[in-house]
């Protein structure tokens, strides 16, 4: 059941002389939560931007395969098509909600393409002649399901910018899910959350996985990463230094070195110094 969903091969992204991502290859499997971790500046967000079409990679390829066999070379698709055709959704490290629109409107904008198809090029809907009202009712129903899932039904008519921080994070995930993705890319969803909110997030992500959407996750909160990930990829300086299950990664000396630093300090374990 765990076949390849996303294959990244030799992905390279250069900014002038800086190689932010250097010949990175990894695989994310369908139905799994794959975490990408690494110290600050390791190139995690750059990888995300390459996958979701915000950057055009300098080299390498990103191949997405749907369950029905349809394949998409993401490095060549424009950003909006990646979301629409390849059905890859994402959230942002610094929350990007439509702050001046209500929570419900945020979730309806996410269903733009489905709704737009029901308006008959807009002209019929302006004249009130299309099946748009039906489509909108369905969209609202779908939004309401997600609002129930993230516990924001009560606040559906409040502006998104007025929500507390944790709720904004959950809303951004719900909004991304409203495009009906096969792969959800989350950029530090637990940043700034308190422990209770982190637990809620874990439950939400596990629920999304159970519903059949695979997740690619960048996260610093190891509590979240170790508990829910099926597979972890560790980056440092744009290169992959480890790849495996949470247990394997936790035990990998390269990972420990990257996180704690290696050098000539006393606290470095003896065997590291010998090696």
């Amino acid at each position: 059941m765990a076949d390849e969903l996303l294959e990244v091969t030799d992905l390279t992204m250069r900014f002038g002389g800086l190689r932010a991502v250097d010949a990175l290859s990894f695989v994310a499997r369908r139905g799994e939560i794959t975490a990408v971790i690494g110290p600050n500046g390791a190139g995690k967000t750059t990888v995300f931007n390459c996958i979701t079409g915000f950057y055009r990679p300098t080299g390498g390829g990103v191949l997405l395969t749907h369950a029905d066999g349809a394949r998409f070379a993401l490095q060549r698709l424009p950003g909006h098509r990646i979301a629409r055709r390849a059905r890859v959704a994402r959230t942002f490290q610094n929350i990007r909600l439509f702050a001046g629109m209500t929570v419900l409107e945020n979730l309806l904008v996410a269903q733009h393409n489905t709704l737009m198809a029901a308006t008959g090029f807009g002209i019929l809907a302006v004249l009130g002649l299309s099946r748009y009202p039906v489509a909108e009712r369905q969209a609202i129903e779908r939004a309401r399901e997600w609002l129930d899932a993230i516990g924001l039904t009560e606040r559906a008519d409040d502006p998104a910018g007025a929500l507390p921080y944790g709720a904004q994070r959950r809303l951004e995930i719900a909004r991304a899910m409203c495009i009906d993705p096969v792969l959800l890319c989350l950029d530090e969803p637990a940043a700034g959350l308190n422990p209770r909110e982190s637990d809620e997030l874990n439950r939400l992500l596990l629920r999304i996985r159970a519903d059949g959407c695979s997740i690619l996750l960048i996260e610093h909160d190891m509590g979240v990463v170790m508990r829910i990930s099926d597979h972890i990829i560790v980056l440092d300086h744009g290169r992959k230094i480890s790849d495996g299950t949470p247990e394997q990664v936790r035990a990998d000396p390269h990972v420990i070195a990257a996180y704690l630093g290696e050098g000539d300090e006393d606290e470095v374990p003896a065997e590291e110094v010998v090696a």
């Binding site: 979701t52 079409g53 915000f54 950003g79 909006h80 098509r81 990646i82 979301a83 629409r84 959704a89 994402r90 942002f92 990007r96 909600l97 439509f98 702050a99 001046g100 629109m101 904008v109 996410a110 733009h112 393409n113 909004r175 991304a176 495009i179």
Partner: peptide, 11 residues
Amino acid sequence: EDEVACRSLGI
């Protein structure tokens, strides 16, 4: 409100 978010939602 946010052009980047629009793009990420397939608009």
